[in-house]
Design a protein around this nucleic acid. Structure first.
Lengths: 343, 343
DNA sequence: TTGAAAGCGCTAACAC
DNA sequence: GTGTTAGCGCTTTCAA
């Protein structure tokens, strides 16, 4: 279709179309863009020629003239990992619909590379930049007074006037707590990641607040540790020793929850009959591989990406997107690990 | 830096630089590109002006003239999943070094979307396209007689004349087998994914060939099933019943291996003392979370991506990249699950 | 209704 | 050494 007959791959220009339709270049342009007035016959002749030759307008030339590139940059420090991918998909969704293409760059969490990529993107005249990360921890922005709008997704700039879209860690924790209480649990423990992570602290905070609204408090200490299965196994042991009558455990991640589930099984506690279990992330391979499959908090990462993209599009369109942090609500995915306890 | 004083974000053109340095546009261009001969003083004056104004050449204009865009497209059907990501990183690595930027597109495994994205990439005048996938299964190509070179990475076109870079599933299977034999195992079972997957069949084939070279054959039937932990648990049960004296199990994926490991533990078989275990994928969260941590085959996906990118760059540069399939060797990552059995 | 010409930002000949 | 010119592919006046 691109080059019907011969093997040479020369690109078809509007000049070729005009020649084939026996009109001037200007007329061909108008015909192709439906602009201006002209005889239907002429327009059809041009369109037919374009079709026949497989003409595609060169967006570089169009952009050069329009002063636009219809591209944005997507910078990630997460090596396109588990968190940034859904965000990217959401963003691509929203952007692709608007005919905007996305340049991807992976910084490997290296500020030098990041700087380098941002330069490159600006040189390419992207119309905006989305920055995603592995953590919601505030991080230095990618630069002040950049000539294009920037949105931080699933990460947050230390500069409050920047636009950041982050998940609702606290709300997610509360969601888990309320669900566990609704299934009749009252002695709810918490095993989570390192305390230095904002995400861990906020999830714990959400749990604690929701419990305290019901006149409860967490069972035992909140156990901060690592984001690993190994820690889940250890943490569960610690919890079972300190608070043997625990009847539910909320975990800071699905990986931790898997570790916890293993220890529970080995200690003879049935899930969910004896102890209910809630994870965080809804990382399906983990949550579904768990025994039993894991009820878990979903951060709606795709929505974060879509929202980030929409903010960016608005900013590009000149809308006065007000800076600041937007929090996307989390939701709960119900599975076997919290089936209601038989009364 | 971009726009020093005022708030307006007007882009600085070479015209501005020339004016500021009080030279003609042509001279400014030469100075900036180190082309032609000129007084050092003039060159410095231009460079200083460019620096001061924060001039960045507009690559659209440059490309328009050069007839190049310095971009390639990356089309994935894997939703940027576990397999395509490392491939993409590898590709980005090789391309980024050459100042080529990457447009990413996710087709969600939908041919319509794929067609659409390919059109869009071609319209954008990418200089080449890399197609990645979730499976190595041959798939219809993205189009014949495209005006730019195409390379399939981690997937394969049904058209043998296309360039495809795939992992060495068979070699990986053989690697696992030889390693198990080297640690003294002789009754080696195999639990893997659905037989309709080429990857599953090839891994099994690799195992079988390597064993037979040593005068051995697999312990029991080769158990084809699903790519899930659940199946790993079941498969291990089946295997233990049919072949109780099995002393090693090679699994078609790390997820399956985790399931197998669980069943083994529950049946009182120690890993690796009684039964050694090898997985496939080196998917770290899975392999490291396993008890014990899993020895597993790594497909070197990053290398697949790098190689794909290099093929593409060669093709773009006009090198007669010969079509056909390139197989990237796998390697073995040693962990606890195959520590040598004490003699 | 159509065509001619200017210009988007840049580079490469070729004059001066 | 430096400036002038033409032109990459396209859109958009403005004249015919």
């Amino acid at each position: 279709m691109a080059n019907p007959s011969d093997g040479t791959a020369r690109t078809v220009t509007i000049r070729d179309v005009a020649a084939a339709a026996d009109v001037s270049i200007g007329t061909a342009s108008k015909a192709l863009n439906g602009r201006g007035r002209m005889r239907v016959e002429t327009r059809d002749r041009v369109l037919a020629a374009a079709e026949r030759l497989g003409f595609r307008p060169n967006p570089l030339a169009q952009g050069l003239l329009a002063g636009r590139t219809y591209t944005v940059g997507l910078v990630t420090g997460d090596s396109f990992g588990r968190f940034s991918i859904p965000v990217m998909l959401g963003a691509e969704d929203a952007l692709g619909a608007g005919q905007i293409s996305v340049f991807m760059c992976d910084t490997r969490d290296d500020p030098i590379r990041e700087r380098h990529y941002v330069e490159r993107l600006l040189a390419r005249r992207v119309e905006g930049i989305i920055v995603t990360g592995r953590r919601t921890e505030p991080r230095p922005g990618i630069g002040r007074d950049l000539p294009v709008p920037v949105v931080y997704a699933m990460t947050q700039s230390t500069d409050d006037s920047d636009v950041s879209i982050i998940p609702d860690d606290e709300g997610g924790g509360a969601l888990a707590a309320r669900h566990l209480m609704a299934t009749g649990r009252t002695r709810i423990g918490h095993v989570t990641g390192p305390q230095r992570f904002q995400a861990a602290r906020r999830r714990a905070q959400g749990l604690t607040s929701a419990l305290s609204s019901a006149g409860l408090s967490p069972a035992g200490e909140i156990l901060y540790g690592q984001w690993s299965e190994e820690w889940g196994r250890q943490g569960a042991d610690v919890l079972l020793h300190a608070t043997p009558d625990v009847d539910a455990i909320f975990c800071g991640s699905d990986q931790i929850a898997r570790g916890v589930a293993e220890t529970l099984r080995e200690r003879g506690r049935r899930v969910p009959e004896d102890v209910a279990l809630v994870g965080f992330d809804n990382w399906e391979p983990m949550a579904l591989g768990c025994r039993p499959p894991l009820t878990t908090v979903d951060m709606n990462l795709g929505e974060i990406g879509r929202l980030a993209a929409r903010h960016l599009l608005d900013a590009i369109a000149g809308q006065p997107t007000t800076g600041g942090v937007t929090i996307v609500p989390a939701s709960l995915v119900l599975r076997e690990s919290t089936r209601r306890a038989t009364p």
